[in-house]
Amino acid sequence: NEEPLPEGWEIRYTREGVRYFVDHNTRTTTFKDPRNGKS
């Protein structure tokens, strides 16, 4: 039961299956979860 991502964020996966987060607001990507700060 995960809380929803902030507005404008999306979860994607690399070809290796590593989860990362896309911030469409700033057009950046990060491996850090914007909901809780954990990677």
Rank of each mutant, 00 (worst) to 15 (best):
N1V: 13
N1H: 13
N1T: 12
N1A: 13
N1F: 14
N1R: 10
N1C: 14
N1K: 13
N1Y: 13
N1G: 13
N1E: 14
E2R: 09
E2Y: 11
E2H: 10
E2K: 09
E2P: 10
E2N: 10
E2W: 10
E2G: 10
E3H: 10
E3V: 12
E3N: 11
E3M: 13
E3Q: 11
E3C: 15
E3G: 14
E3L: 12
E3F: 09
E3W: 09
P4M: 09
P4Y: 07
P4D: 10
P4F: 07
P4K: 09
P4I: 08
L5S: 02
L5P: 15
L5T: 03
L5M: 11
L5W: 04
L5E: 02
L5V: 06
L5F: 06
L5A: 03
L5Q: 02
L5D: 02
L5K: 02
P6E: 04
P6T: 03
P6H: 03
P6M: 04
P6A: 05
P6Y: 03
P6R: 05
P6G: 05
P6F: 03
E7I: 09
E7A: 12
E7Y: 09
E7P: 15
E7V: 09
E7N: 11
E7G: 08
E7Q: 12
G8Q: 04
G8T: 02
G8S: 04
G8P: 02
G8Y: 04
G8V: 01
G8K: 04
G8I: 02
G8W: 04
G8C: 07
W9T: 01
W9Q: 01
W9Y: 04
W9K: 00
W9F: 05
W9M: 02
W9E: 00
W9P: 00
W9H: 01
E10A: 06
E10N: 04
E10M: 05
E10Q: 06
E10V: 07
E10P: 00
I11L: 09
I11T: 07
I11K: 06
I11V: 09
I11Q: 08
I11E: 10
I11G: 03
I11P: 03
R12P: 00
R12I: 06
R12T: 04
R12Y: 07
R12N: 06
R12K: 13
R12D: 04
R12F: 09
Y13S: 05
Y13T: 07
Y13L: 07
Y13I: 08
Y13E: 06
Y13V: 08
Y13R: 06
T14I: 03
T14H: 02
T14P: 01
T14M: 03
T14L: 05
T14D: 07
T14A: 03
R15G: 10
R15L: 12
R15T: 13
R15K: 14
R15H: 12
R15P: 14
R15I: 11
R15Q: 12
R15N: 12
R15Y: 10
E16A: 14
E16L: 12
E16T: 14
E16Q: 13
E16M: 12
E16W: 12
E16G: 13
E16V: 08
E16K: 13
E16C: 15
E16Y: 10
G17F: 05
G17T: 02
G17E: 03
G17N: 07
V18A: 08
V18Y: 10
V18I: 14
V18W: 08
V18D: 07
V18M: 11
V18F: 10
R19N: 04
R19S: 06
R19I: 13
R19T: 07
R19H: 06
R19Q: 10
R19K: 11
R19P: 11
R19C: 11
R19D: 02
R19V: 09
R19M: 13
R19L: 09
R19F: 05
Y20L: 06
Y20E: 04
Y20I: 07
Y20C: 07
Y20Q: 04
Y20A: 01
Y20T: 02
Y20P: 00
F21S: 00
F21H: 00
F21V: 00
F21D: 00
F21R: 00
F21Y: 08
F21K: 00
F21G: 00
F21M: 00
F21I: 00
V22W: 11
V22S: 02
V22M: 09
V22E: 06
V22K: 06
V22I: 13
V22P: 00
V22R: 05
V22A: 05
V22L: 10
D23N: 09
D23P: 01
D23F: 03
D23I: 01
D23L: 02
D23V: 01
D23G: 01
D23W: 02
D23H: 08
D23A: 02
H24W: 11
H24S: 08
H24E: 06
H24K: 09
H24A: 07
H24C: 08
H24R: 08
H24N: 10
H24T: 10
H24Y: 08
N25C: 09
N25V: 10
N25G: 07
N25H: 08
N25F: 07
N25T: 09
N25W: 07
N25M: 08
N25S: 07
N25P: 03
N25I: 11
T26S: 09
T26W: 02
T26Y: 03
T26D: 04
T26M: 05
T26V: 02
T26E: 06
T26I: 02
T26P: 01
T26H: 06
T26L: 05
T26N: 09
R27L: 09
R27E: 11
R27C: 15
R27I: 06
R27V: 07
R27W: 07
R27K: 15
R27Q: 15
R27F: 08
T28L: 08
T28D: 06
T28C: 15
T28W: 04
T28Q: 09
T28M: 07
T28P: 00
T28V: 07
T28A: 05
T28E: 10
T28K: 11
T29G: 07
T29M: 14
T29L: 13
T29K: 15
T29F: 12
T29V: 15
T29S: 11
T29I: 15
T29D: 07
T29E: 15
T29A: 14
T29P: 08
T30V: 04
T30Y: 05
T30R: 05
T30N: 05
T30A: 05
T30P: 01
T30L: 03
T30W: 05
T30I: 05
T30G: 06
F31E: 10
F31A: 10
F31M: 15
F31T: 15
F31P: 08
F31Q: 12
F31D: 13
F31W: 09
F31L: 15
F31K: 11
F31H: 14
K32G: 07
K32V: 15
K32E: 15
K32L: 15
K32A: 11
K32S: 11
D33F: 01
D33V: 00
D33Q: 01
D33W: 01
D33P: 04
D33G: 01
P34F: 01
P34T: 00
P34I: 01
P34H: 00
P34N: 00
P34Y: 00
P34R: 00
P34W: 00
P34D: 01
P34L: 00
P34M: 00
P34E: 01
R35S: 03
R35F: 05
R35P: 03
R35N: 04
R35G: 03
R35L: 04
R35A: 03
R35C: 03
R35T: 06
R35K: 02
R35E: 04
N36W: 12
N36F: 11
N36K: 12
N36Y: 11
N36P: 14
N36Q: 12
N36D: 15
N36A: 11
G37F: 10
G37D: 13
G37R: 10
G37A: 12
G37W: 09
G37L: 11
G37H: 11
G37N: 13
G37K: 12
G37E: 12
K38V: 14
K38G: 13
K38W: 11
K38D: 14
K38I: 14
K38L: 13
K38E: 15
K38P: 14
K38Y: 12
S39I: 13
S39K: 12
S39Q: 13
S39P: 12
S39M: 13
S39C: 15
S39A: 13
S39T: 12
S39E: 14
S39L: 12
S39F: 13
S39Y: 12
